[in-house]
Every structure is written in C-alpha cells, then in structure tokens.
Design a protein around this nucleic acid. Structure first.
Lengths: 213, 213
DNA sequence: AAAATTATTTTCCTATGCGATAATTTTTCC
DNA sequence: GGAAAAATTATCGCATAGGAAAATAATTTT
C-alpha cells in the first residue's frame, strides 16, 4: 500500500482529462481494472514493470508519475531524418576523405540529418608520434575492427589494442586516436553521433585543408 | 519478477561506479540488501514506493532507472551517457539474444543511455517465408555486411542484395527484415538509434519470449 | 422513476515483493 | 595458499501487489 500519493493523483487526472474509463485504461495498458482503481486511490504501489506498462500504454513519459519531473517532455517526432527512405552503399560508394592518419569513406551521405554517421576508415598512422595530438569531438563514437588490429588511445585510459572483430564505444568528447598495429592493412567501421558536417569541420580544423575526392 | 532488465543494469552500474556495496546502498536507501541484490539481477520488480526511496536515497533522478521513453534519444547534452568513459568488447563479450531469425550480440551493454546501439548479428533465416512478417521499430538503422551476403527486405522498396563490405542506412520505422543468401554463414554489424530496451522489447513482442544468455 | 446499462469499488485469492538470516562466493591479509 | 573478513546470493516467511469476479454506485433509457 502506497505512502506516496502522487501516482494516484497523476493517473486519475490523466484519465479524467482524456475521458477514459478504467476499462479504457485497462484495455490500453493491459493492467486490470481493479489494480488501476486501487492505484488511483493510493491503495496499491505499482511495481516497476507495471509502471512501464502503464506509461507505455498511455503513451506518456514515465516522469508524469513522479513528483520531481524536471520538465522532460522531449517528444519524439523531431526533424528531417530519412523518413521512409533508405540508402545503399556499394563497393566504392561514399565520400572519401584523406588525412595523414586515416582514409575515410563516409557512407550514406545523400541522407541528411541522420541520427548517427557511419564511416569506414583505413588507419594509416603506425605510431603515436606519427599520429600527432589526439582529437576530440562532440558526441559518442563506436568502432568495430574489420581487418588488422588497432591501438586505441584515449585521454583518460591506457591505450587498448583491438583485434579483428572487437569493438569499442566511448564518449568522443575525450580526445582519442587510432594507430595501426603491425604492418598489415587495418580497417575499421566507425559510427559517430555528431553531425557529419561538424565531424568534417573538425578534420579541417586539425589538418588544415583536406583531400577529398 | 521482472521482465524489464533496465532497472537491474542501471542500479548495478550506478553502484559499481561509485564503489558502493549492497550494504552501502541499503544504508542510503533503507531498502534491504536482499531486495537490492534481487533487483540488480532482475529477480524483483520494485514497487513505486521503493523506486522513489531508491532514487532519493542515492540522490539520482528517477529517470536513471527508466530507459528513456519515446523522445530523448538523439539529443545532444542530455543526462547519463558514457561521459568520459569507454567500453571495450572482446571476442565473446556482449548480451546474446537468439530468435528464430537472428542471433544477436548487443555490444557495450554496460553503457546505458547510448546515443545509438551497436549489434553484431548472425542471420539465420534463408527465405522470406521462413522469416515471417517484417518488423519495424522507431528510429534509424544502419547495417554493414561483415560476412556472406544478405537480402534486405523493406516495406517500400524492392529487396536489395548486399555483399560483404556493403551497407545500408534506412528509416527503421519502415518494416524490414534480413534474409541470408546462399548457404555460407552470414554476419552483419548493425547500429540502431532507438534505445536498447525498446529494441529488445519489440523482439519479445514479436516472438513471445526470447532466448537470452 | 424503475429498469437496464455502464462505471467504480470491494472481496477473495494467488503470485510476487521484500525483509531477516543462512549459505555461498569473493576478497583480503597473514 | 589457507584462514578470516567482506560481499553477494539463496532460502524462508509474512505482507503486499494485482487479477477475476461479485457488489455497489452512477448514468442512461424507456
């Protein structure tokens, strides 16, 4: 039985505002009418699972049911992604960019405003000296080793070696850099969460002009 | 007993990051050690009251314990991403999930609230009939073929065949499905923009219970 | 306004939450 | 490398969550 009265009030208010009956809400959420009734009258303290069922069924943010609720709201339908579209990358498609350290191929560049940016890169630098200063950019980055092995250097960690098939996910706000191990070719698939333009910009910043085909 | 695994992982992560023992957390929150232990292992679905006790005791926002609902995903400066952190996936790391059509390995699952979700999947279905109805989920999806070739089926397009090294980016709100071509093993690397839990949820929705190790 | 219909609460029962303590595992310190 | 200590997990039992259906209250119909 509940001490916190907020859940009950929030639920009842939501329900009445939308002119839903308990049966309606039961239908939408899969919770029983009796459980809902008791919840509204604070005679029942729903478990985690049921809370999720409730908020998903009613399509409201979970914070609706908690006091503090720091104005979350961030609703879905944000801007112009590839709504209903797709883009295929064949063998040599993509936007190729060369720097002293990497040769990038940015994929699916004809789709704008993607939620993340996929890139295939060949690592050229063979030592940290050759690489130069590490680079940081907003967002998060994931890298999967397709071929060879890489040494990943990051600001707050000891370098880590990744072999083919291994991967890493990190906050790309930490400065970072990839160095090829051994002398076989070394290729990775990276995904970045910051916009393509800002990634390419930071390359230009770092290397001056840049070789694009 | 819980179905939603997020609470357990979020709590354990929070606890370990701060070097707290279960006893410490029990002290701070007033919940029993055994309840906490079970919660972390998803054997217990805390009630509303206890959730509030937990978040207040640990002085974290309640949303820490919920996979960000509909909206939040690709926003920039939002809460608890892997700020300043990294996560490495060795050969057999990851959260493995099997369905009739795929065998997934979700990567970097110890980082919560990632901006996108990397997955390695082995495609098992060999025909569209075998695959069954296509599946849709919020957000965007990118897939790169690591091995073999796949036929990608999507709602508004003719099927496309991708060979090793090719890739596709599309709106995953379109129903879609992957089918292996030929009879060699077929492995892909996928990235999805919607939260891990909601992906796994839609799997469960689709297949009923699901085989997780 | 009584009957019929629809909405809500109560009752009763089973499954699950959750705490005390015992058993086990992991870590620390000789 | 084994004993002691610390941390985690398992077991048991009572209390509460939560569903089905009966009882009551509120609306609508005729």
């Amino acid at each position: 039985m509940t001490k916190e009265a907020h859940l009950g009030r929030a639920l009842r208010q939501l329900r009445q505002q939308n002119d839903w009956t308990l049966a309606d809400v039961s239908e939408m959420t899969g919770l029983s009418i009796s459980a809902l009734s008791k919840t509204e009258r604070n005679q029942l303290s729903l478990s985690y699972d049921k809370l999720i069922q409730l908020s998903q069924g009613l399509k409201v943010d979970i914070t609706t049911f908690f006091e503090d609720a720091p104005g979350t709201a961030a609703q879905s339908g944000n801007s112009a992604g590839p709504a209903g579209r797709r883009s295929i990358n064949r063998a040599d498609d993509g936007r190729m960019i060369k720097t002293p350290n990497y040769q990038y191929v940015y994929l699916s560049t004809e789709l704008l405003n993607k939620k993340f940016v996929p890139i295939v890169a060949d690592i050229k630098a063979r030592s940290l000296e050759e690489f130069g200063p590490l680079v940081a950019h907003d967002g998060e980055e994931f890298t999967y080793v397709l071929q060879g092995s890489v040494e990943v250097h990051t600001e707050h960690y000891a370098p880590a070696i990744l072999k083919t098939g291994e991967s890493i996910y990190f906050d790309s706000g930490m400065a970072h850099g990839y160095v090829a191990c051994g002398d076989q070719p070394c290729r990775v698939m990276s995904v970045c969460s910051s916009p393509e333009a800002s990634l390419i910009n930071s390359l230009k910043q770092h290397f001056g002009e840049v070789d694009e085909s």
